[in-house]
């Protein structure tokens, strides 16, 4: 039984990082309907920025802010370099896919040049390695912190989207760019703000997962992008609470398949289960017909 609860603890802490990343993905892919293949590279960029900040001696909370803001800035850059340019020329959305794929490869290449291809690790922290043992279940402070930070980020995003003027502008642009123009919302700047939010979430998720597994590598974003896409389809495209629930679900599925089946089948089981769920509910687990978008 303790194995079971141990997996629940591990699954929730892993799933919370997936949830943070997937919220950013659903903003771009689902709400704005933009296919940004560089989203995984932003995740990787955030992990390295947080790592470098920590190595410079910044305390962990400040390093997280660096990863968050850095990811946001990288998100804005991906909009400026790829999507704004294509929009100005009336480019097709699949052109954005190709161009952002190229951008992602450039970022991975740069990371290899700057940081090397070797896996890197965060400086050890005596504080975060504190752990408790409760009834045979080991809970690390690091896991608790990761879950708390993730929940705070989820709440901040929800408040931004629901209560702020920028959030209403994002939802209006998502509904119709023409309607946004009619009420005087600057469409280009609002899309850029969305890229900032999504990039910040990706960057923060990169640092969180980098700490959880204590692994940072130039290629960590590739797999994450696929997971992010899977989670948002599972949760219903553009559905932020769905992305959160889907993230936790994928995290739990993964750790349970490692514990009870085999680590070789982790992704096969994760994606396979999601495929089965989508066979039953093609619009995603958490989508309602009239209220699909953020």
């Amino acid at each position: 039984m303790s194995t079971f609860f141990q997996q629940v603890v591990n699954g929730i802490s892993l799933g919370s990082t997936y949830a943070v990343f997937a919220m950013g993905c659903t903003l771009i892919f689902g709400v704005l309907n933009i296919v940004n293949m560089a989203q995984g590279a932003l995740f990787m960029g955030g992990a390295y920025l947080g790592l470098e900040a920590a190595r410079l001696g910044l305390p962990a909370p400040l390093a997280l802010v660096v990863a968050l803001l850095g990811g946001g800035v990288l998100g804005v850059l991906s909009d400026l370099i790829v999507f704004r340019t294509l929009r100005a020329r009336g480019g097709h959305r699949w052109m954005g896919l190709v161009a952002s794929l190229a951008l992602a490869r450039v970022m991975v290449g740069l990371a290899q040049e700057i940081f090397g291809t070797q896996v890197q690790r965060y400086p050890p922290s005596a504080f975060l390695s504190i752990a408790w043992e409760i009834g045979g279940v080991r809970i690390q402070l690091l896991q608790v912190v990761i879950v708390v930070v993730s929940v705070v980020l989820m709440a901040l995003l929800a408040i931004t989207l629901q209560r702020s003027s920028t959030g209403r502008a994002i939802r209006t642009v998502a509904f119709s760019e023409d309607v946004a123009r009619i009420v005087g919302v600057p469409v280009g700047r609002t899309i850029m703000a969305t890229f900032f939010l999504a990039g910040a979430l990706a960057g923060a998720a990169g640092m969180l997962l980098g700490n959880l597994f204590n692994v940072v590598s130039p290629f960590m974003g590739d797999q994450m992008l696929v997971k992010g896409l899977t989670v948002i389809i599972l949760g219903g495209l553009g559905n932020v609470p769905g992305a959160v629930a889907g993230g936790f679900l994928l995290g739990l599925i993964e750790v349970f398949s490692v514990a009870y089946v085999s680590s070789s089948f982790r992704d096969a089981i994760g994606f396979g289960l999601i495929f089965l769920i989508l066979l039953v509910k093609p619009t995603g687990l958490f989508s309602r017909v009239e209220d699909r978008r953020a």
């Binding site: 003027s165 209403r168 502008a169 939802r171 209006t172 509904f175 119709s176 309607v179 009420v183 005087g184 919302v185 009239e290 209220d291 699909r292 978008r293």
Partner: peptide
């Protein structure tokens, strides 16, 4: 904006 509340529709009207 069909999927936003009445109040949010009014508030986005004051965006500028």
């Amino acid at each position: 904006v069909a999927n936003m509340t009445v109040e949010d529709n009014l508030l986005v009207g004051a965006y500028t």
